[in-house]
Amino acid sequence: MRTVYVNGEYLPETEAKVSIFDRAFLMADGVYEVTSVLDGKLVDFDGHATRLARSLSELDMPEGPSRDELLEIHRELVRINEVTDGLVYLQITRGAPGDRDFVFPDPATTPPTVVLFTQSKPGLADDPKAKVGLSIVSVDDLRWSRRDIKTVQLLYPSMGKMIAKAQGKDDVWMVEDGHVTEGSSNNAYFIKGNTIVTRPLSNDILHGITRAAVLRFAEEAQMAVEERLFTIAEAQEADEAFITSASAFVMPVVEIDGVALGDGKPGPKAARLREIYLDESRKVAI
Rank of each mutant, 00 (worst) to 15 (best):
Y5V: 07
Y5E: 10
N7Y: 03
Y10H: 11
E13I: 01
E13A: 00
E15F: 07
E15I: 03
K17R: 15
I20C: 13
R23I: 02
A24L: 09
F25W: 07
M27T: 04
G30A: 15
S36F: 10
L38I: 11
D39F: 06
D39G: 14
L42W: 06
L42G: 00
D44R: 14
D44K: 09
H48W: 07
T50Q: 15
T50N: 14
T50V: 13
S57H: 14
E58T: 01
M61S: 09
P62I: 04
L71I: 13
E72L: 09
V78N: 00
R79T: 13
I80S: 08
N81D: 13
T84Q: 12
D85L: 03
L87M: 14
R100P: 02
P107N: 11
T109S: 15
T113M: 05
V114M: 05
V114Q: 10
V114E: 12
V114T: 09
V114I: 13
T118F: 08
Q119L: 14
Q119H: 12
S120V: 10
D126Y: 12
L134P: 03
S135P: 08
S135I: 05
V137I: 15
V139I: 08
V139K: 09
S145G: 10
D148P: 03
D148Q: 06
D148F: 06
V152F: 01
V152M: 14
L155Y: 12
P157R: 04
M159P: 01
K161D: 12
K161E: 15
I163E: 07
A164G: 08
A164T: 03
K165Y: 13
D170I: 01
D171R: 01
V172A: 05
W173Q: 04
W173T: 10
V175N: 02
H179W: 07
T181W: 10
N186F: 02
N187E: 13
K192Q: 14
N194P: 08
N194G: 15
T195Y: 09
I196Q: 04
T198R: 07
P200Q: 01
N203R: 15
N203C: 12
I205K: 00
L206I: 13
H207V: 04
H207K: 13
I209Y: 03
A212S: 14
F217H: 10
A218V: 08
A218G: 10
A218S: 01
A221W: 09
M223K: 00
V225R: 02
E226G: 01
E227C: 11
E227Y: 08
R228G: 00
L229N: 11
I232D: 02
E234P: 00
A235Y: 11
A235P: 12
A238L: 03
D239L: 11
F242C: 00
T244P: 10
A246G: 12
A246F: 07
S247E: 10
A248I: 11
F249D: 14
P252N: 04
P252K: 07
P252R: 06
V253N: 04
V254N: 04
V254S: 02
V254L: 05
D257H: 03
A260R: 15
G262T: 06
D263K: 09
K265R: 13
R272W: 04
I276C: 06
E280N: 11
E280C: 09
R282K: 15
K283D: 06
I286F: 12
I286V: 14
